[in-house]
Design a protein around this nucleic acid. Sequence first.
DNA 1: AAACATAAGTAGACGACGTCTACATTAGTT
DNA 2: AACTAATGTAGACGTCGTCTACTTATGTTT
Lengths: 223, 223
Amino acid sequence: MRNLCEDVGAVNFSEKTPVSNQQIQNAYHHGNLSSDILQRAVEIIDEQGLDALSLRGIAKDLGVSHAAPNRHFKNKASLLSAIATGGWMQLRDATLKAADATASDNPNVRLNAMGRGFMRWALRNRALFRTLLHPDVARFADDDLTEAMLEFSASVSDAVQASQRQGRLSDVPLPIVSLFTNAVPMGAALLLINPLLSADHPDFEQFEEEELIHQVINLVVPI
Amino acid sequence: MRNLCEDVGAVNFSEKTPVSNQQIQNAYHHGNLSSDILQRAVEIIDEQGLDALSLRGIAKDLGVSHAAPNRHFKNKASLLSAIATGGWMQLRDATLKAADATASDNPNVRLNAMGRGFMRWALRNRALFRTLLHPDVARFADDDLTEAMLEFSASVSDAVQASQRQGRLSDVPLPIVSLFTNAVPMGAALLLINPLLSADHPDFEQFEEEELIHQVINLVVPI
DNA sequence: AAACATAAGTAGACGACGTCTACATTAGTT
DNA sequence: AACTAATGTAGACGTCGTCTACTTATGTTT
């Protein structure tokens, strides 16, 4: 069960290899079933939405029997948990890498980069990002998922705190600053992703994605 | 079909009357079935989550046959659409009333109040708020839902534009300001609602809800 | 190398669900 | 009073999640 988490970390969901790195060991034992299931699940969510996701459908797509996925995921909720766990890990890596890429030790520069890294990842992994925020994911969160979430959250919190020591919004309580700082990339990404919500802003077409992200994040963490 | 929308507007989801204002006309014809279905649906989402919502379950709870709901909602997606339509209407009313309650014509004061009204509503109608943002709701949005969403969006856009004419962030393109302004209450509410995400901020317990909202919104729309 | 526990797959069954069709009952109009 | 539309019922169908019992491969122990 715990090693599932490491599996997830290793899989790159966004790379769409043709569903099987499977070094077909033989016809009976599939080889990479659990990671193939995760990969296919994200594809389905992307293409047909979360309510079109079924364990049986995945099994059929992968050419295994309908009950095979049960050997790797206790139930559907735990599949969602595993997907979300991998997503939070990716999101944390993306934000931290963005901070490191600045090669700066200015907390504001780093925090700004993290905000942009967050949005960039969210906009390029839309289905996965939506899954992270899905109510039923949080509801049935297992320990792995909770841990991954907390790790992400801690890495952001540290950066916010550092920037506050640098003087950014230093007169506002930390939890408030933290909430505010997290809310902008999260809310903005959600708004941009939602077809309903961005439908009334065809204005956005005038911006390059990177430019749009840049301008929004600058309003939260000026540099 | 169109009149469904008016039904929704009339129902107050948050009032938990014991499921039936039904003036039981007789045993066969239920009387208020469609609005009772909506009401019960929101209760279920609140208590057991969206994936526990079933048309058959609602029918059983209301004491009608399993196929009765199909007379009022073409399918499950259209039930979700109707729920969301009512939600957006409530949300728009809540924000506009908050603005009017200031009895001010200062655009910044009004916009600030709208942000607080938004968050207040979201935190007090959590299940409904989550449903508004549910990916499968947007995916199968019908015309009523789209219209309700656009009406909400327009009312916020107007307020943002007015505040920009007043000098707030006047050097930033309107779509960016709009995105930023919307992102904060939406993201903040989402973060506060998510049990996973707010778990690492037990810090929030030190704040009254209203005080918390006040401080966060002041960071987006200072007055 | 043989024996054996365990991991990983299969087939079949069960109840719940969404949705369709055919039919029954009531409400409203003419 | 008769007709039509709205609203509810019963039954059926295919899909789904999940459980159980069984089968096959893997890998460790002896």
